[in-house]
C-alpha cells in the first residue's frame, strides 16, 4: 500500500447524501478479477450518458455535462468533498479501488459508512470526518472559488484552507500508523502467530464443535 503523509490538492464537491458504493462503481465492473483499471468507470452511471460495460474505452463516451466530475474546473482533483453517509451499501472494495485509480487520495465528509471507511485505509485513501457545519461551509467555498485546494497533513491530523484556517480531525492511531508508513496489515498480524495459535488451542477445549 502506498503511504500517505501530506497532500495538497484540488477539491471536487459531490453534493448529495447517502452516496452508495453501487453508484461509486456499478456492478457490471465488479466482474473484473483485478484490483486496477476501475478509474475510468468511477461513478459511471452519473458520469456518462451511455451504458458502460467492462473493458469499454471511455475516451469517446458521451459525458453528462451536469455531473461535477466532468466540469473542467475540477479536472485533476485529488480530494473529494462529500455529504453524510458516504459509501453506504455494498462492501465492494472496488469502490475505493475506483476512487484511488481515478486519483483521489482524500475524502472529506460529515460521516461515512463503516465498511467503506475501513476499506479506504486498506488502500491508501484517507477518509476524513469533519463536522457537518464545516463541511457545509467547505461546499460553499469550493463552489465559489475556482482552483480551491486543501492541504491535508495526516501526521499532524489537520486540514488547512487556502485562507490558512486549520481544522483538526480525528483518526484511529493504529490506522494512522499503517497509512503513514504504508504497512501491510497481514504482515503485522502475522507477528502474533503464537497468540493466534494459543487462542485456537484454548478455544478447541471450550468449543470443540467449531473445529
Amino acid at each position: 500500500m502506498e503511504k500517505f503523509e501530506k497532500l495538497t490538492g484540488l477539491v471536487v464537491p459531490l453534493d448529495r447524501p447517502n452516496v452508495d458504493t453501487d453508484a461509486v462503481i456499478p456492478k457490471q465492473f465488479l466482474k473484473s478479477i483485478k484490483r486496477t483499471g476501475f478509474g475510468p468507470y468511477l461513478f459511471d452511471e452519473w458520469r456518462y450518458l451511455d451504458h458502460g460495460e467492462p473493458g469499454m474505452d471511455c475516451t469517446d463516451r458521451p459525458r453528462n455535462p451536469d455531473f461535477v466530475l466532468n466540469q473542467q474546473r475540477y479536472e485533476g482533483a485529488r480530494i473529494l468533498l462529500a455529504r453524510d453517509n458516504f459509501g453506504c451499501g455494498s462492501s465492494r472494495e472496488h469502490a475505493p479501488w475506483a476512487l484511488l485509480d481515478y486519483g483521489f487520495r482524500v475524502i472529506i465528509a460529515p460521516s461515512f459508512a463503516d465498511i467503506f471507511y475501513n476499506n479506504c485505509f486498506k488502500n491508501g485513501i484517507l477518509p476524513i470526518v469533519l463536522p457537518a457545519e464545516i463541511v457545509d461551509r467547505l461546499f460553499k467555498e469550493v463552489s465559489a472559488t475556482p482552483g480551491y485546494e486543501l492541504a491535508v497533513d495526516l501526521p499532524a491530523q489537520t486540514v488547512t484552507t487556502p485562507a490558512g484556517e486549520v481544522m483538526h480531525f480525528g483518526v484511529d492511531p493504529f490506522r494512522k500508523h499503517c497509512l503513514v508508513n504504508g504497512l501491510d496489515d497481514i504482515g503485522l498480524t502475522l507477528q502474533h502467530v503464537n497468540e493466534i495459535k494459543a487462542y485456537e488451542q484454548r478455544r478447541k477445549q471450550e468449543a470443540p464443535w467449531l473445529f
Partner: peptide, 20 residues
C-alpha cells in the same frame, strides 16, 4: 459482518481480523 476484499485476504491468511 461484511468485509472488504483486503480483509478477505487477511482472514484467509491469518484467520483473524483487525477490529475495534
Amino acid at each position: 459482518f461484511g468485509i472488504g476484499t483486503s480483509e478477505v485476504e487477511h482472514v484467509l491468511a491469518t484467520q483473524c481480523l483487525i477490529q475495534k
